[in-house]
Computed example of a mutant assay.
Amino acid sequence: MKLDHPHIITEGNLTYRLGELSGNSILYDFDKMLIYLEAKGKLMFGERFRIYKEDRGILLKLCNYIIKDYDSCKKDGIDPNKGLLLSGPVGCGKTSLMRLLKFLVPYQKPYSVIPSRNIVFGFNHIGFKVIEDYGNGQYFCFDDLGVEPTGRHYGKDCNVMGEILLSRYELFVNRQIKTHCTTNLNARELEERYGKRVRSRMRQMFNLVAFEKNSKDKRK
């Protein structure tokens, strides 16, 4: 893959053309993006991975967001300058999609997908430095937000992800640095977990994109 041709991506011996160049812009083809995402998904997660027809609607929103199709995002009520809060039931594919999406745009700064529970385990081991580490200028997607345990270091409890979200809010406001998250929780449950202050800031930081409540568990 050449960065002067960011719409053409090579994986092994295969080349995927995601669209066509038009001046300084790329005219993306949604169906070609889905073909690439499925191929990349099989490489990353195994041959059983596939893109499901019933997920096309949510994938269209996610793809339009990641390629910064401002007109389409506006129609969907999505702000490309905010992060993504991707919600849905267990096993619907949130984590896999967030791990895949960034490969569509190799010219953008990538984000790292980090399980929220791992961050808390790190806090339990080394303390508040963990919160400082995730409050820096890097790009992150915090996976499975809201189901991580409460942090505890030297006998003191801490809502670790709540504190990190407050730090990420300051980065968003002052430096326009985005954060992404996946969660199984709804808005009420997130407020119960993190409090009104954090929930209020989350509304400003994130675009909520949600799978249907009855989305199938793809792990079965």
Rank of each mutant, 00 (worst) to 15 (best):
F211P: 00
E192P: 05
R193A: 10
I51T: 01
D69S: 05
R199T: 06
H5R: 15
R203N: 13
Q138I: 05
N81G: 10
K32E: 10
E212H: 12
N13F: 09
D71W: 00
G88S: 04
H5G: 05
D55T: 01
M33K: 05
G57N: 07
Y154N: 14
F211T: 00
R175C: 09
Y111E: 08
K74N: 10
Y28L: 11
L59R: 05
I78C: 02
F45T: 00
E54Q: 10
H5Q: 15
G83Q: 07
I51A: 02
F142N: 04
L85F: 08
S116I: 06
R50V: 00
I35R: 03
F128I: 10
I9S: 09
V160C: 08
Y16D: 07
E192C: 11
I78N: 01
L18W: 07
T183E: 03
G93S: 04
P89E: 05
K216G: 02
L208G: 00
T183G: 06
I9W: 09
L34I: 08
R56Q: 09
P110W: 14
Y194G: 05
H180D: 08
R152T: 09
G46Q: 04
K82W: 10
I35W: 02
M1P: 01
D69Y: 03
K109H: 13
A187E: 14
T179Q: 04
E11C: 13
N64M: 10
E170P: 01
F128V: 09
K68C: 08
K53C: 05
G195P: 12
R197K: 15
K74S: 13
K196I: 13
K53I: 07
R99F: 09
L59E: 01
K156E: 13
N81I: 02
M1A: 12
S25L: 12
V160K: 04
C141E: 03
N207Q: 03
N13D: 13
V209Y: 01
D31A: 10
G127Q: 10
K129C: 11
Y194L: 12
N118S: 15
Y139L: 15
T15W: 06
P89Q: 05
R152S: 14
E163I: 03
I58F: 05
V173R: 06
I126S: 14
C141K: 04
E20S: 15
K213R: 12
E47F: 11
L104T: 00
K109V: 12
Y107S: 13
I51Y: 04
D76Y: 15
E189R: 12
K129I: 14
D69T: 02
L34T: 03
L3A: 11
R219I: 06
G77L: 06
A187C: 04
L14G: 02
K53V: 08
V160W: 04
S116Q: 06
F206Q: 00
G137D: 15
R117I: 14
H153A: 07
R168S: 03
F140Y: 15
K2F: 12
K109A: 14
M205C: 07
R175H: 12
V130I: 15
V173C: 07
